[in-house]
Design a protein around this nucleic acid. Structure first.
Lengths: 131, 131
DNA sequence: ATTGAATGATACTTTTTAGGTATCATTCAA
DNA sequence: TTGAATGATACCTAAAAAGTATCATTCAAT
């Protein structure tokens, strides 16, 4: 698992675009060029963020997406968890129920602390910071 | 790119096994069962670590691999860079020469700082810590 | 009502990467 | 000379990421 995959990258740009647009809603068709993603793909990303509560959505003519909260309250970690699921630095075999020995667990324990601190750092980056 | 993929996981266990074995060299055939990786795959991993200078190798009968340095001087970051190449938290489109806008760069800059601190943390974990 | 612009949901395909195998060459101790 | 070991490398397979396609639903404007 990559920490920041392309979906998150596109999402970050799209949200920055929306924050700047200063309009009640922005349709995907208006952001796709700036974001650099194909329309259908970007739509799928926006839909996931809507389900995760990061965006509001308005259907029908004149509709589009809007930030559900102020830019400073949307964190990079929100995007990552919505689009990539939980962070796992060590895709250790433990989690696959295959690992029986102790070494891997020692590694996992070390990684868990590192992972927690990384997550905390990522939670300090907001959409506002990227504008 | 995962931070710790299976190669690194296997490598960590193999090196711990070697550190414990307390023998001049350990052939792959003797570690594969404990490590839990198939022989040829594990050999390939060991060969990469040898090329990276993490291991010594002795060919021929009675040969095998040995740690090139003391366990406390082999860092998790050594394994990661030998087996996965440079760390990239943000596989940003910038690096693919596709990104032209500023938002992604803001994201990249933020990530670079986080990345550096993560790397520093990973460099504090050594094989000795995992024994 | 009808139309067209928008999202909702979801199935499908393609591309890339990770994971793993196979094979032959080389070295070296017994 | 043999067999146990690594060196190098080509190849294959499986899984995940990235992207496309399609149809349903909603809603403002006419």
């Amino acid at each position: 698992m990559k920490l920041i995959n392309r979906e998150v990258d596109y999402a970050a740009r799209a949200l920055v675009f929306m924050a700047r647009a200063n309009k009640p809603t922005v349709p995907v068709a208006q952001m796709q060029e700036t974001v650099g993603a194909a329309g259908p793909f970007l739509r799928k990303i926006m839909q996931k963020l809507h389900r995760a509560g990061v965006l509001q959505a308005v259907k029908g003519k004149g509709g589009g997406f809007a930030l559900a909260r102020a830019p400073e309250n949307i964190r990079l970690s929100d995007l990552i968890s919505a689009l990539q699921g939980p962070l796992r630095l060590n895709d250790c075999v433990v989690r696959r129920k295959l690992c029986r020995d102790h070494e891997a667990c020692a590694l996992r324990r070390r990684m868990e602390g590192i992972e927690a601190r990384l997550l905390a750092e990522i939670a300090t980056v907001t959409v506002k910071d990227l504008i």
